[in-house]
Amino acid sequence: MKSPSKLLFVFLLVSSTYLVASSSNWLTIWMGLEINMLGYIPLIFMKETTSESEAAVKYLIPQSVGSTIFISSAIISNYFNNSQILMVIAMCLKLGVAPFHFWFPPVMASLQLAPAFILLTWQKIAPILAIGALSPSLIKLVMPVAAISALWGGIGGINQTDIRSLLTYSSIGHTGWMLASVNGNYIILLVYLLTYMLINISIYVFLSKNNNKSHKQLFSFKEPSKLFILAISLLSLGGLPPLVGFIMKLLVLMFTQASIVIIFGLIIGALMSLFYYLSLTFSVLLSFTKIHLTEFKSTSKESILLFLSQITPLAMILSFF
């Protein structure tokens, strides 16, 4: 696929997300979700392989089912108010959160790195904004799904050896935290999304150079600075204090209105996620010596991305609070 076509579909992704964010009725939200889906599917075909075609079909079917349930529920809600609960189910299906995550890991396993990271980051914005447009009573129904997603993201990632599978289950866990932040301060949700996107972009820059797939291949860089930056990015994604990933989880716990059972589920899921990130990076961090630290150079593009991913959300928090 040629570059102008890619730019067109990227424009559709961005414009459809803004359409969902600025919509005032269910019809335009549904239109934005449909444009978002149709703009992403052509971006899947990077090398036009059979695995990418399989991933496109596996992505299309649940997304179409979710959109159909959403617009049907919006129409029926004019006559039966209780039918709006189907909107919650539809958006959870489009997000790929547990227990509606059956399509998410197979699709991620068949994608190239660029569309995979778009699916991990940008494709979560529109459904979460649609959930935020629901009534407070319906948003409370999302809280058990948030806790289940956080727990399943921690459990599913423990025995994974493939990097994409690891990031997939980590994404399921983080989506649970995003859903928990919907029932609280809206600014916290936006900053959490920005934080998650920046950390994933910094990891994507490293993975795209070596096309690593397993744990042993992940830290195959010869430069100590790149090893250290990648380890810090992964630990921040896991929520290790005092990195920005931990600070965002702490802010969600402070501002969310979820019950103590839901908060307990979120914390347990985050601890399990942090466990497999620590086991992944522990040997690498221990290999650093005083000589390596003195040779550390922070002038590369990756270092700038890491700096932005750790500092920008904190600057936004200070500006709003």
Rank of each mutant, 00 (worst) to 15 (best):
L167R: 01
A146D: 14
K140P: 04
A109K: 12
S135T: 15
P115G: 05
T168G: 03
L166N: 00
A150Y: 00
I148N: 10
L134E: 07
L138I: 11
Q112E: 15
L179C: 14
Q123D: 09
W177S: 01
G154S: 14
T168A: 05
P136A: 11
L120V: 01
S165N: 11
N185H: 13
Y169W: 15
G176C: 00
G157T: 12
W152A: 11
F117P: 01
L129C: 07
S181C: 11
D162S: 10
I158C: 06
T121A: 04
I128G: 01
S110V: 03
P136K: 11
I187L: 07
V182K: 11
V107Q: 05
P136D: 09
V182G: 09
A133G: 03
G157W: 05
V191A: 13
V142M: 13
S110A: 14
D162Q: 08
A180G: 08
V142I: 15
V142R: 02
T175S: 14
A109E: 15
P127F: 11
S110Q: 09
T121E: 02
S135G: 02
F117Q: 00
Q112N: 15
G173E: 07
S135F: 09
G156Y: 06
I172F: 12
G153E: 02
I172E: 10
I158W: 13
P144Q: 15
R164T: 11
I125L: 13
S181A: 14
V107K: 03
I148F: 14
L179T: 07
N185A: 13
W177N: 00
I131H: 03
L151D: 06
M108V: 04
T161L: 05
T168I: 07
K124G: 02
I128C: 03
N183H: 00
I125T: 13
W122D: 06
I188S: 13
L189F: 07
G173T: 00
L129S: 05
A130I: 04
Y192K: 03
L134T: 08
T175C: 10
L166R: 07
V191E: 13
G154P: 08
G184K: 10
I139P: 03
G132T: 08
I131Y: 05
M108S: 10
I118S: 03
G132V: 02
G173P: 04
P136C: 13
L113S: 05
I125D: 00
S170D: 06
V142L: 12
I128T: 10
Y169D: 03
L166H: 02
Q160D: 08
T161E: 14
L179K: 07
T161Q: 06
G154E: 05
P115Y: 03
I139V: 14
Y192W: 12
T168R: 00
R164L: 08
S170C: 12
M108N: 07
M143S: 15
M143Q: 15
M178V: 08
T168K: 01
V182N: 10
L134I: 09
